[in-house]
């Protein structure tokens, strides 16, 4: 079973001159930590948005655990998937606890079970002392960690993270990566996008590199590195496929 499978995925936004996705096809096996990599504008966020049901594709199909992403299946997919957006999608005027309680309520949790769940996650992410502090006053790392907690309250089988470690310090990054490993060890699937290729190489069992809305290569990081004699790491592989031209 694949955690995700996209086939010939196409998307052209209204008014856009060029398509964002031009027949992207790729699959990730269930229970793996997979990386969706690509330069700016490659189509990573559009792919994730289609997988979550936030954007309708112009063509092609997307499946999550074999369920086609259609309006009829949207609720079932939402229950199976947790998305950590790149932005800190929390209310800065609310405390971490209030934010998590609100999103927990939206997931249908309430009362003591929710309280315990929140406190457990806050503790796991080292935020228990800041539980009643407004998130607007958090450091970058604290915000990122709280952002992740808000997406895993319903314990999704698939966790999709968009740049989860952008702008955080070494300690926070280490804590986040450790959490991803542990979450994956429980049998859950993780897909994440990042520009930090060293980090992807370190954590991902499989990566897909996409560019200009198409898949350019896919495989385990070590396999991809081994395919090209001049490539010493994933960054070299990335540059080999996507070139050195700066993207806007």
């Amino acid at each position: 079973m694949n955690s995700i499978a996209v086939k010939d995925l196409q998307k052209t936004y209204a008014g856009a001159l060029t398509p964002s996705l031009q027949g992207l096809s790729c699959t990730f096996a269930e229970g793996t930590i997979a990386g969706l990599l690509g330069p700016n504008g490659a189509g990573k966020t559009t792919t994730i948005s289609i997988l979550c049901g936030l954007v309708e594709p112009t063509g092609g199909t997307a499946e999550i655990f074999g369920i086609p992403q259609t309006p009829a299946n949207r609720e079932a997919i939402k229950r199976a998937i947790g998305v950590v957006p790149q932005q800190i999608a929390l209310f800065p005027q609310l405390t971490a606890y209030e934010n998590l309680r609100y999103f927990g309520n939206l997931y249908g949790f309430s009362g003591r079970p929710l309280r315990e769940k929140i406190m457990q996650h806050l503790e796991a992410f080292g935020l228990e002392k800041a539980a009643h502090k407004e998130t607007g006053r958090f450091s970058g790392g604290m915000k990122r960690r709280a952002n992740i907690i808000a997406s895993i309250l319903h314990e999704p089988k698939l966790l999709v993270l968009d740049e989860p470690t952008a702008g955080v310090d070494v300690q926070s990054r280490s804590m986040i990566l450790q959490f991803l490993r542990e979450y994956n060890a429980k049998g859950n699937s993780v897909i994440y996008t990042s520009h930090l290729l060293e980090e992807a190489e370190q954590i991902c069992e499989e990566v897909a590199i996409i560019d200009e809305g198409k898949l350019v290569t896919q495989g385990a990081p070590s396999d991809l590195i081994g395919r090209h004699a001049h490539c010493r790491n994933l960054e070299d592989v990335f540059l080999h496929y996507t070139g050195h031209a700066v993207r806007d």
């Binding site: 939402k78 998305v83 999608a89 929390l90 209310f91 808000a150």
Partner: peptide, 19 residues
């Protein structure tokens, strides 16, 4: 919408109309 919390709310199962 700008800070992404709207996206988070829409990604949560259940009708956004209730929110």
């Amino acid at each position: 919408r700008e800070d992404g919390s709207l996206v988070r709310m829409k990604l949560i199962p259940g009708n956004y109309l209730s929110v």
